[in-house]
Design a protein around this nucleic acid. Sequence first.
DNA 1: TTTATATTTAGCTAATTTGCTAAATTGATT
DNA 2: AATCAATTTAGCAAATTAGCTAAATATAAA
Lengths: 122, 122
Amino acid sequence: MLDMNDKIKIFKALGNETRFKIFKNIFTGGYACSIDNTQPKDDLIAQATCVTSIAEQFDFALPTISRHLKEMKDAKIITMTKNKNKIYIEPNIETMKEIAECFGTLVADYEKGTLFQFDNTK
Amino acid sequence: MLDMNDKIKIFKALGNETRFKIFKNIFTGGYACSIDNTQPKDDLIAQATCVTSIAEQFDFALPTISRHLKEMKDAKIITMTKNKNKIYIEPNIETMKEIAECFGTLVADYEKGTLFQFDNTK
DNA sequence: TTTATATTTAGCTAATTTGCTAAATTGATT
DNA sequence: AATCAATTTAGCAAATTAGCTAAATATAAA
């Protein structure tokens, strides 16, 4: 379960143009290994990508991308898994689900009118 | 429809502790006027709150809260409606719906496996 | 063991952000 | 017209962020 600080970190991570684009790229970038249907879907190496491949698609220095990825990992919106000397990067789908649910609940509760239930009259 | 820059602004607005708490407060703060069930639900003045009432609940100077609210308005996560010399503030439910849908779609598409459809082999 | 590849860490600068107080603005009330 | 209430604007300082290059680390390959 994500607490308030987790959520703030997630939004902070996504609230920057470079990181947002990196995030989008991780989901939709179509890295070579990610479309190799001859590889089993649960094969990490077949389905994931690495820091250098991501950095190649942006006009920023590698350490800059590396630091952005670290922030995204700390925010739990991606996972970074070391395998030999490469780090494989994947979206963290569990976090995405929780965030989707969090906004969904907010809207649903609002529409049910179950918010506005306290009396802080002053 | 929210474009990429709209979304970045939304996440940026929510990715700061003070603004996140203000946002939460607007949804759940239970301002006096917000629970007056003798007032019709579509009565703006009966259901909304104003800059000063929000600021009273935080340990920051009023202009600081005012500027945060402006950023949240620019990000379209709240609405600010001037009525006489007060500004009434409400959550922007349309935006919340779009964001909920955006994450929902991301997760659904990911699970359907419809992402990873390009071949950027290098 | 040397070299190449993948990544991070350190240390710097410029830009941006977040807070403040004081002053300005706008509209309501006396 | 003078004052009060609600809000914003301006201008400042401190903190944080986002970029860079150079150096360090870790693993793989020759």
